[in-house]
Structure formats: C-alpha cells, structure tokens
Design a protein around this nucleic acid. Structure first.
Length: 307
RNA sequence: GCCGAGAUAGCUCAGUUGGUAGAGCACACGACUGAAAAUCGUGCGGUCGCCAGUUCGAAUCUGGCUCUCGGCA
C-alpha cells in the first residue's frame, strides 16, 4: 500500500502511478471528496480520471450527512480489503493528514465513546455558557486527559468531554489501521510555485462552473452545513448572496487554501518516514524509483514492464 | 480658494480624563485521537504624517506645515 500526500498535482501523480502498477486502485484520503455534488472545488477526479484507474472513497454521503474519521476508516478499510482480495495495491491519495494516519498507522477509535446526542448537548452548552464550564467539568472527570489537551480549543474540549462522559477513565481502545506494509510518499513544491498553482487552480474552478455548482447546492441545502466550510464553497456562496465580488472571493479562497497548505506541511513534517518528491516533470519517475525497492521488499514485481 | 473630516503595524481600524501603544486580517512557526479544506496556540511587526510649543511626561493638548477624502465655490 502506498500513501500519497500534500501539494497540488497529487491526483494526477496518483493516477499515473496506478497505471503502472498491476491491480492498483486509488482510495481518496480527502475529507471533502466524500460529499456528493461537491466536485469542482474539491478537485475531485473527473470521470476520465476515474476511468483511468479505479477510485474509492468518493461521493459517499450527501453534504448534510454526518461523516467522521471513523466513517472514513470504515469505508477506506473496506475498499482496501477489496483491493487486497483482487491482489492489487491500494494508493491512498489525499491531503487530509488525520485520514491518512488513521489508515496507515491506526487511531484508537472505539465503538462506545461517541454519541451524537451527547455531542449536540455539549455543543449547545458551549454556545450558551462558553468554554470555561466545560473545561472545569472535563478537569473533574478526567484530570489526566485535560492536562494533555489544548484547553483553548472548543472542539477538542467538547470531544474530550464527550468521551470522558461515556467512558470515564477507561483506557483508549487499541489503534486499528490497515494491517499491511505502508510506504509514504510526499509531493512538495516551492512556495512561489505552489502559490501560483493555487491561484490558477482557483481561476479554473470559477471558470468551469463553481458558481453554478454552488447555486445547485444552495437550492437543496442550508448554507451553514459543515461540509460547506470547505475552501471555495464558502466563497462561492458569498458571491451568490452578494456578500462578495468574484475577485475578492477568489483572493479569499486563495488565502485560505494557502493557509491550509501550510497546515498540511506542518502536519506532514512531523509524520515520520515520508519520502519527499518534488512536484513537476520528474515526479513520476522519482516516485517509481522510490517505490521499486519497496515493492521488491514486500514480494511484488509490479514494475516488470511498467511504462 | 473656503469649510469639514482624517493621517497609528503590510492592510482595515481601536486607543477612555496626557503616563513612551492594541485588535482583526496578512506573514512565520507550532499543535492536532470521531467537524480535520475544521479547530486552536505562539511569534514577528509601529521613532503613533512632519516641525515646533505647553508639560516632569504628548498618539492624546496648542500652533504651523505636508498629504488624503468629502462638500462649497
């Protein structure tokens, strides 16, 4: 199994790699590509690209459905098991670090430490009373957990309290990921080029119908869905509602995308064992060179004859 | 030319009765265990338009100058 990560151009690289590997199939590791109807700004693979290599993990739910890492793990693991049955190799392609880690290293996600109702109640309390009472309660319930947590972060506090309420001090479950050899590849770009690509990609999104797509979504769903906090959609809604003109929306989108790319970089920097490849002309060759010895190590000879 | 308003961080702006400056955004760095394209933390950054005056002390008060915006001619 190969995990690809970070920087624009990874979808193309993933597909090119898959085409040279016997039985390779792609599993998206992109948290926004699971939503149906959100195609353009999520840079979802096109029909042609999906035809070039089998894809999994796309269009799993409607934008107003709840979808979490746990759901992702279930879907990805199932897809991966199918690929293994077919004797193939799975390529996780995407930039959502948590999703990649969940599969490639495993995360302790239990079946009884999450409850939607409770979560909703805690969120309502947060809204009403602020963060402090929740922090106090968490400290009383699980002092050790509280000490290790970023107590300024409402989202973390709410989740920690949810878990502490449901399980008390019970030890977290064993991390469960994909039980097979993993190779990590990272795609990277220098800052200036990365920013240029972000800008031109956003121009392309708007030029190829992002506003129309957003209009269709807006007709069916409320604007404040969590899924719609995704880069591009929030800005498109602002344009449709007259809150922003297209140029400033693009600028905001680009700024947000850049921040995100920086956060990804921070995340993947601390992820051990990634082989970094420069994006561009030579990236496919570099990726193949990196993968070849690994394939040999796990007893495959996929590259015999691969173009 | 006259009247009025304004000039404070890269940008948009706060700054109470004078005690050598803050926020948001941007930028850099970091965290990340069920919303993760989310959420949060840290840091960098200002001779407060210029000159003079009053005062122990001026972003703050006074005078002059420069520039910007609006209105009137």
């Amino acid at each position: 199994m190969v995990a690809g990560a970070t920087a624009t151009g990874k979808t193309r690289l993933g597909i090119a790699l898959a085409q040279g590997l016997r039985g390779a199939e792609i599993v998206s590791a992109d948290s926004r590509q699971v939503y149906r109807g959100m195609d353009i700004a999520t840079a979802k693979p096109t029909p042609a690209e999906r035809a070039a290599a089998p894809h999994h993990g796309l269009d799993l739910v409607e934008p107003d459905e709840r979808f979490t890492v746990a759901d992702y793990r279930e879907a990805a693991l199932e897809a991966l098991a199918g690929i293994a049955d077919r004797g193939g190799i799975g390529l996780l392609v995407g930039g959502t670090g948590l999703y990649l880690r969940t599969i490639a290293r495993g995360l302790p996600l239990g079946h009884h430490d999450s409850d939607h109702e409770l979560r909703a109640q805690l969120e309502a309390r947060l809204e009403r009373d602020g963060l402090d009472p929740l922090v106090a309660e968490l400290r009383a319930l699980d002092p050790d957990g509280a000490a290790a947590l970023d107590l300024h972060n409402p989202r973390r506090v709410v989740r920690a309290l949810e878990r502490a309420t449901l399980t008390g001090h019970a030890a977290p479950p064993e991390p469960e990921g994909y039980p097979a050899p993993v190779l990590w590849l990272g795609l990277r770009l220098d800052d200036a080029e990365h920013r240029r690509r972000i800008e031109s990609r956003i121009d392309e999104h708007f030029a190829t119908g992002l506003l129309d797509e957003a209009e269709r979504l807006r007709a069916r769903y409320p604007e404040d869905l969590r899924a719609f906090s995704a880069m591009g959609y929030r800005e498109a809604f602002d344009v449709l509602a007259g809150r922003a003109d297209p140029e400033s929306a693009k600028a905001t989108d680009a700024a947000r995308t850049w921040s995100y790319a920086r956060r990804q970089r921070t995340w993947f920097r601390s992820e051990p064992g990634i082989t970094w490849i420069e994006a561009g002309e030579g990236s496919l060759a570099a990726a193949r060179t990196t993968i070849a010895p690994w394939l040999e190590e796990i007893g495959r000879d996929d590259y015999a004859g691969a173009g």
